[in-house]
Write a protein that binds this DNA or RNA. Sequence first.
DNA 1: GTCTATATCTAGATAGAC
DNA 2: GTCTATCTAGATATAGAC
Lengths: 224, 224
Amino acid sequence: MKTRDRIIHASLELFNREGEPNVTTVDIANELDISPGNLYYHFKGKEELVRELFERFYEQFNVILRAPVQNPLRMEDNWFYLVVVFEHMHAYRFLYRNISLILQRYEQIQRPFRRLIHLKQDAARAICVQLRTAGIMQIDDAGIDMLARSIALTITYWFNFDNLLGDRPGDDEDLIHDGVLQALSLIAPHLGAMQREFMDTALAIHSRLGRAAVQATRTKGGKK
Amino acid sequence: MKTRDRIIHASLELFNREGEPNVTTVDIANELDISPGNLYYHFKGKEELVRELFERFYEQFNVILRAPVQNPLRMEDNWFYLVVVFEHMHAYRFLYRNISLILQRYEQIQRPFRRLIHLKQDAARAICVQLRTAGIMQIDDAGIDMLARSIALTITYWFNFDNLLGDRPGDDEDLIHDGVLQALSLIAPHLGAMQREFMDTALAIHSRLGRAAVQATRTKGGKK
DNA sequence: GTCTATATCTAGATAGAC
DNA sequence: GTCTATCTAGATATAGAC
């Protein structure tokens, strides 16, 4: 692996682990056993590093959020879609840890980041509309707007909130699956008669056995 | 007003406006036209300042969160309670702007801050239980846990999320009332037949006319 | 490409005169 | 209580040798 790429990877690793504001250029150089001067040969500075990491995040997330859920009427598909969304955010979670600080210090990523949040909300809205059209969900337009906003907010701050509560016994996988369940719990009450069935399926997937099913779906139907 | 108090007030003002990490001790001194040395005569440093501000926040918020809603069956009372909660958070919003950074830099406030979040969740849970007992809300125990968590999360990150969307035409008052509506929209779908009535009342309060009613309630029944 | 050495800049903090 | 002057530490960034 080329030095430039090693720097990118080590930075992401350190940013996620320690938090971006707590990682200095010297820290990154130390982690790789190279000199700070060498790092500055490859990147003008920390800003360029963060920008490049964000660009990678943006491109991939953009694709994910624009891909409509294949079959939102099936509980499993919504679940799987949310897992993908959460996993991607988790891979770049340093961006979410102190959003407003990041957006302020690196102004260039402000607009695209906001665009992603709006995309997220739009994706949620689209799924809700599909569910309503299929007669599964009973909700008016205003309700859908509120619901989509709640979903976007929950997804965006889930990692922060979980960390804030500070009482997680599980690992990162649990963290993500709990987040998915939390997001779906916002939709459930609008489902009327099918609500019970809906949440039962969700809880089944949430169990270890169900996760194996997610793994199967991933290897079978996943694009990469 | 004594210098010490002027420092406290100016700090809160600046922290809220610019964000705590962007305000230096010199900034605070300049704002008050006093010397940095003078500031350090009154406070050991920025940490002591933040701690004192947090303590004030904590004491008041603790009281608010432990005060049960007078009559949760009346829509207006829930609304008013949430307004009080949001307003208090808004007065110290710098604490919420970069929560994880603040909690990391000022370790002493970590535990009490977490306690407040849990209290918030407990208050939400208590209200839900009351609504269920009264037969107004249909929901099981697991559902209440999820719901209370959603409410706590929404309230905690509402200001951040709104700022992130970046398309608010209104002022701070609108911001708070929209937050209240967003939080209540989480409860609404569990109300069954009364749902329509519930949200209609909420939207009425949300209008300018309704806010006058909140003002009236405040002056009539408010403790301070 | 990589290193060592060093310069710059900022924020936090202190000493001592008034 | 308040001021001026100054110090320290940490992070970013650059110069020039290898």
